[in-house]
Write a protein that binds this DNA or RNA. Structure first.
Length: 757
DNA sequence: AGCACGCCGACT
DNA sequence: GTCGGCGTGCTC
């Protein structure tokens, strides 16, 4: 027999499936979806069995050994890998790496054994102080030196595979056919009529000693089985009584529990969405089916877990947890040992024994699109729901335009939860900052917002300020020559952080020390330009010197636990004014009379077709934090009072309709599909030529496509943006483009979810 | 001729 | 990702 194996070749986007001979002793044991160790060139690599077949013309080498005891990729995951390859245009090896969790990935090592020490020259001499040294990535630096040392016989090299985390096993004890002599021993022997763990045996009153003697005598055998972490519900009493709307929502979704259907559960926070989730999960648990809930971050995961755990067994995959704990939860979901799995979008590929529902919470959030803009989490979840024939519930207070559009077409069912648990009338005020300037107010704080905060502080109450812009200033400018420092890697302007005196790239994380001297002309007239959250904090402290002020942004929360601690302190009223980026807008219920929204003008101008929707959602969500029990006011400061996003903050339907109208006219989703094609060559020139050439070819051959660009995007790259009514059309020629440019020593990449226009 | 270096393609 | 083959070009 033969196996088709997808060899783990991390970077190259080449054909990666090769045929291997299955050694006769592994026949029957090796199955589809298991990983195996195979020889590849002069290397030893891990690969995934993608097919088992009885004939192969190509196979010459045999599989060395199995790497897993059972398949780690099931039918559904194969389907998803295939989907990523076809729809997201990701090469299959990369798709495989997306689907396999980090905890199960492997690293390749070189084990160097010193044979003749006197033959060694520098730098090897000082590197190989011990007789056996293991190298990982640093191997590459010295590979040629090692090579020479091998041929001169001073060292030998072996390959080793390092698993980051393996599936843990533990011993189970089982009786054999050999009956022991004494009565006591026989009691233990009879008790082990099925495999039991040592803890359970001890709990039942038998001693370790006895087990061991019986093992020695051959009356008990030891089996290795996977060690499962058990997630148990904490068993509370009855759940809360449902409101009429909640009952209707639960009923509507319950009706289609065993078929594929999409729902949009629209409700502001505190409208009781979580209770609806709980009811659905409990219903499924009775049917021995599992639920997957996706949310955004540690805090929201924890909130959900605390709500569900009294009634259900709940596992959690949080990227901030350790590899081992993520793997435990992964296995619990895969083996069906848990009712509910809560995870962030990073966990959307977790396999389940028997999945019954998928709930995508905070469905409007951009983090559902992966960093590389090639995968949309919501699309993957839709594919999984379709595959498993189960419902998919999107939950959001401010649904993405795409889902609103789908709902109007009847492609998904809209369920609204309108009743706020606390009824209050929220007030909205939009302040024109141009007028403030005319009236002589030079500060970043408008008079109405200043008054509102002041009043609140006098009443011993709090204020929440959204300033969604990291750092002290969006960029620094040399007033002498006009130079603006940009990122080496992505060419975007660097954000200035005053506290750390550093310039950072908001895009890729590149950072450098800030010197108040111009890198281009040497002048010392370098000044920060524009406003960021650090500056807001400084000014707030100056304006309200007696108030306790805290800031929540990516910088202050880089240490684990700070986020939650600050939120808790704010809830406990130990902080008077909380200033934060978008991270303060999600999930938390504060009871505050004043919400101030600053620095949104640049967001409205962002070069993304999603800018309006993101800004609208952010403002709405932040407003939603204000005034639960008490009356609240939200104050939005802007220079663009006429912008339709701001004008329709209290007219939801109006917003969606105007935005949809705009997108239809400008040819954006949901009416048109986008595909960006990015060329990266050895030189800017080469990339531009290729992009221009392809554009002409597309225009002349396919009149239905609209091509925008080419425009310079990252360093040494040019981008074309294709807009088309039907995406189906694109697939067939993408393959040929790829092959064509591979020969030209140019890299071409395709991004389905690029929103930057 | 002899060797160092870099690019290219094969790897089942 | 890794290695070997082959061509180029430099040096003795």
């Amino acid at each position: 027999m033969f196996a088709e194996v997808m060899v783990d070749l991390k970077t190259k986007e080449i054909q990666s499936s090769y045929d291997y001979i299955i050694p006769s002793d592994l026949e029957g044991f090796l199955k589809l979806g298991m990983r195996v160790v195979v020889p590849f060139g002069n290397m030893t690599r891990v690969g995934l069995i993608t097919k088992i077949k009885s004939e192969s013309l190509a196979a010459t080498k045999a599989i060395i050994e199995p790497f897993d005891m059972e398949p780690i990729v099931d039918k559904e995951l194969f389907h998803l890998i295939n989907y990523l390859e076809e729809e997201a245009m990701i090469p299959s090896v990369l798709a495989y790496h997306k689907v396999i969790p980090d905890a199960l990935s492997v690293e390749y090592q070189k084990v160097i054994r010193v044979m003749k020490r006197d033959g060694l020259k520098e730098p090897l001499k000082s590197l190989l102080i011990d007789d056996v040294v293991v190298f990982k990535k640093t191997w590459r630096k010295y590979s040629s030196a090692f090579q020479k040392a091998v041929s001169s016989g001073s060292i030998e090299i072996d390959e080793a595979i390092d698993q980051k985390r393996s599936i843990q096993t533990e011993n189970y004890y089982l009786k054999t056919t050999k009956v022991p002599q004494t009565q006591k021993q026989q009691a233990l022997w009879l008790y082990l009529n099925e495999p039991k763990r040592i803890e359970d045996i001890l709990d039942s009153g038998y001693s370790k000693q006895m087990v061991q003697t019986l093992v020695k005598m051959g009356s008990i055998s030891i089996q290795k089985q996977e060690k499962m972490v058990v997630f148990k519900p904490t068993y509370a009493e009855d759940s809360k009584a449902l409101t009429r709307e909640q009952k209707e929502a639960v009923l509507a979704i319950k009706e289609s529990l065993l078929k594929y259907e999409r729902f949009l559960l629209k409700g502001v926070s505190a409208s009781g969405k979580t209770e609806v989730f709980l009811q659905l999960c409990m219903e499924l648990s009775k049917k021995r089916k599992q639920a997957m809930i996706i949310t955004l971050d540690t805090a929201l995961i924890e909130q959900l877990r605390l709500y569900l755990n009294p009634f259900l067994s709940v596992a959690v995959i949080d990227p901030e947890d350790t590899l081992q704990s993520r793997l435990d939860s992964y296995r619990a979901a895969q083996t069906g040992y848990v009712d509910v799995l809560i995870t962030t979008p990073s966990g959307i590929f977790t396999p389940f024994k028997s999945l019954g529902i998928i709930i995508a919470d905070e469905a409007q959030d951009p983090s559902y699109i992966d960093y590389a803009k090639t995968i949309h989490g919501l699309d993957m979840l839709q594919e999984r729901a379709r595959y498993n024939n189960i419902p998919l519930v999107y939950a959001s207070a401010t649904p993405p335009v795409q889902l609103y559009y789908d709902a109007t077409l009847g492609k998904l069912r809209l369920i609204e939860l309108n009743e706020k648990v606390y009824q209050t009338k929220d007030q909205l005020q939009i302040v024109d900052m141009k007028k403030e300037l005319e009236n002589g107010n030079l500060s970043m704080l408008s008079k109405p917002l200043y008054d509102a905060i002041n009043r609140s502080l006098k009443d011993n109450k709090q204020a929440l300020i959204l300033a969604n812009r990291n750092g002290f200033a969006p960029y620094v400018l040399c007033r002498s020559c006009g130079h603006v420092p940009t990122c080496e890697r992505c060419d975007t302007t660097l954000t200035y952080f005053e506290n750390k005196r550093r310039l950072k790239c908001p895009h890729c994380g590149y950072q450098m020390k800030y010197e108040p001297k111009c890198m281009a002309c040497g002048s010392d007239k370098v000044r920060p330009v524009g406003m960021g959250i650090e500056q807001v904090e400084v000014q707030m402290k100056r304006t309200f010197p007696l108030a306790k002020i805290a800031r929540l942004d990516s910088e202050t929360t880089s240490k684990k636990g700070v986020y939650q601690a600050t939120i808790n302190a704010f809830k406990a009223k130990k902080i008077d004014i909380l200033i934060g980026t978008q991270m303060i807008s999600k999930g938390h219920d504060f009871d505050i009379p004043v919400v101030g929204i600053l620095l949104i003008d640049s967001m409205l101008k962002a070069p993304s077709y999603l800018a309006n929707e993101r800004c609208y959602q952010l403002i709405k969500q932040t407003m939603g934090r204000a005034g639960r029990k008490q009356a609240g006011v939200s104050i939005v400061q802007t220079y663009q009072t006429d912008h339709f996003v701001l004008k329709s903050l209290e007219d939801e339907i109006g917003f969606y309709e105007q935005e949809l109208n705009r997108r239809q006219i400008a040819h954006y989703p949901p009416y048109y599909q986008l595909l960006s094609i990015v060329f990266k060559g050895n030189s800017l020139d080469q990339a531009e030529r290729a992009a221009t050439k392809l554009k002409q070819q597309i225009i002349s051959r396919y009149s239905q496509y609209e091509v925008v660009g080419p425009s310079e995007s990252d360093i040494k790259t040019f981008k074309l943006m294709i807009k088309t009514g039907k995406r189906q059309d694109l697939k067939h020629w993408i393959q040929s483009i790829k092959q064509y440019y591979d020969k030209e020593n140019l890299s071409v990449r395709f991004y389905r979810y690029d929103d930057i226009v």
